[in-house]
Nucleic acid binder design. Structure first.
Lengths: 206, 206
DNA sequence: TGTTAATGCGAGTAATAGCTCGTATTTTTA
DNA sequence: TAAAAATACGAGCTATTACTCGCATTAACA
């Protein structure tokens, strides 16, 4: 059987995809300012200089906007530090490894407050689960792989739990990281690294 | 000048306060199940077996419900382990101190999912700020005092930052703590303690 | 150039939200 | 017991929501 369900062969992609990008830009801003739940789809359309009808031509519902936006965030996260967050850091001393992992993530999160807005809305979990999952997987799986390469003999269950805890520790400090001024930021980031370094050293060694 | 704006001298407190308690119980359940934003005031009233009019006789708006509920949580938190979370733990070895602090908090949070629901809704911050503040202050100030007693010579700014970071680290792990089954819980709690122990030891010594 | 399809609009719809108000009942108070 | 106050109700008001639909405009393609 041939795959005749694939690609509806969309045309007019120049104008259309530009519009989608504008709508996602607008959604990013409004989500960052008001959060997902309190953001109306009409407000997103208005912020993009479009009409509700146009918005719903590209996104079947509000959740699809969050999904697409998160997908774009994850893609950009990969691009932004694909090389820094890859497995090559596993061989570095712990302190250096954390610098290489955390600095780009902090920069990305602060540059994209809408990403934080979507990630940190725990009670829209059910609704946003499909949007959040890829982003959480990105962080967790990368770290799990790094830990595996770093300490090959480690029990898999223990390694996985360590990775999950480390990701949650970082997310716990994200509110401080996001709220910090430029002057405060270095101290907050240093404290973040100190916490993760202490935990990881105690859990899997230096 | 006399304070003639004080206390409207409410009467009928037996029936009325019982109703308020029922409404807060209902709010706690519905918030836990659906989150603050998606919970309707009519649903709270219905869950309490009351009418919307009755609800609005005791709470001037939806936010006031969250405020009152959080106030009740904080009061119960104090009662639940007022003695365990007081300054007497400051003299214990770090590991024991963490046991004494964390175990009751974990028990309370798991027994009161509505508390977690209100606390962990960062994008209702503006709206719920007044509700969340006392709960966050409770944790932070207590820990700050404990650290002060534990390491009297420590720089105040550093101590305060350490306390804030520790509270955020715990909150970062709260999703795992709340999601864990009874079987998984001990491992998750141990990992929580390990993370806090490692961080605090590296920051202020053992 | 003419047909087709993608893009665009915005008034409009059904549902639901927070909240009010007139009124009825119960309890306190005098 | 009578008046006053607190509690209770629930239909309904206004605002807002996510989303639709008929129709106009623009661009691709034969």
């Amino acid at each position: 059987m041939t795959d005749d369900t694939a690609k509806p062969v969309r045309k007019r992609q120049a104008r259309g995809e530009k519009r989608m990008a504008e709508l996602l830009d607008a959604a990013s801003e409004v989500f960052a300012a008001q959060g997902y739940a309190k953001t109306s789809t009409n407000a997103i359309a208005a912020a993009a200089g479009a009409s509700p009808g146009t918005l719903y031509q590209f996104f079947k519902n509000k959740e699809a906007i969050a999904d697409a936006l998160m997908e774009r965030y994850v893609k950009r996260l990969r691009e932004a530090h694909g090389e820094a967050f890859d497995l090559s850091v596993a061989g570095l001393p712990l302190e250096e490894m954390l610098d290489r992992i955390i600095d780009p993530i902090v920069a990305f999160d602060r540059a994209n407050p809408g990403y934080y807005a979507l990630l940190s809305d725990p009670h829209l979990s059910a609704e946003l689960a499909s949007a959040k999952r890829p982003a959480q997987k990105l962080m967790f799986e990368r770290l799990d792989q790094i830990l595996e390469k770093r300490t090959p003999g480690l029990d898999a269950e223990r390694r996985t739990r360590t990775a999950a805890v480390a990701v949650h520790l970082f997310r716990g400090l994200l509110p401080m990281i996001m709220a910090a001024s430029e002057q405060e930021l270095p101290a907050v980031v240093n404290e973040t690294k100190a916490a993760l370094r202490a935990y990881l050293a105690s859990s899997i060694g230096n």
